[in-house]
Design a protein around this nucleic acid. Structure first.
Length: 255
DNA sequence: ATGGTGGATGGTCCA
């Protein structure tokens, strides 16, 4: 089983690239974030033609998550149970091949100390409580998506520049550790110790060319899945294609 | 210190 995550920054704008990457990488499951697309307009037919089923949880203009899968998805859950009416659509879960896949788009937070920053920290705390309340560590659970936090200094091109700033502040990293403390292992770090491995580069100032990026997209797994994880990597190629997303896919292979 | 780039949208907001 090959599972991937990719913040596509509009699934409609990125449709040709997503289809191209599916054909190239052939993942069994692809979790998408920032689809920016209501469910009625989600290009499910194009993905079906490529051999993928779609589950979607979108909203107009902002946010939105989806899961593409070669295999049937069951027990699809949209959002957290305690979401308020009209809440931002940032979580979609489904069971595929015995694996509970939880796809999240954690809030960006804008800047440290802003209302959006507080919203981000609260959302992350709710996510930890969501796992406490609804999941067992003995299950095969995979949490992936755009976490909008770089966990460690080696995940940031210039940690001194980013210290205390959004995506790398102490409170964000602590909130990330809280979620991880439920019982997750970072699949990527099972196989790679090296720093300078990034999943996102700002569109501005030639960040990709200069490799001034951050590793903020992640695939985390519970213990039994960690034991089955053969490989995990970041596929930088689509970030170099025409009209790219600012994020690139992260992949993990199991079994 | 500011703005830089891109998407959705049709003014700005968000990242």
């Amino acid at each position: 089983m090959k599972i991937a995550t990719w913040n596509v920054n509009s699934v409609l704008a990125r449709l040709p690239l997503v289809l191209q990457w599916l054909e190239l990488a052939k993942p069994d499951v692809l979790c998408l974030q920032e689809t920016k697309c209501v469910d009625e307009k989600f290009p499910a037919a194009a993905f079906a033609e490529a051999g993928y089923l779609s589950e979607t949880f979108g909203q107009p203009t902002y946010n939105g998550v989806a899961i593409l899968s070669r295999y049937a998805m069951t027990d699809v859950q949209r959002g957290m149970p305690d979401d308020e009416e009209g809440a931002q659509r940032r979580l979609l879960a489904a069971t595929v091949g015995g694996v509970r896949v939880v796809n999240v788009y954690i809030p960006n937070g804008q800047a440290v100390g802003t209302d959006k920053y507080i919203f981000k920290l609260k959302w992350m705390l709710r996510l930890r409580k969501f796992f406490n309340a609804h999941y067992s560590i003995s299950e095969k659970v995979l949490l992936c998506g755009d976490f909008n936090v770089a966990p460690e200094e080696r995940d940031v091109h210039d940690p001194r520049l980013w210290e205390g700033r959004i995506l790398f502040s102490k409170r964000e990293r602590a909130a990330l550790e809280e979620i991880k403390g439920w019982g997750f292992t970072d699949a990527f770090r099972l196989h790679t110790e090296a720093g300078g491995q990034f999943s996102w580069w700002d569109y501005r100032q030639g960040a990709f060319r200069r490799n001034t990026g951050m590793r903020i997209d992640h695939i985390w797994v519970s213990g039994s899945l960690a034991a089955e994880c053969n490989a995990s990597w970041i596929d930088k190629e689509p970030r170099g294609w025409e009209r790219p997303s600012d994020h690139t896919p992260v992949v993990a292979e199991f079994g």
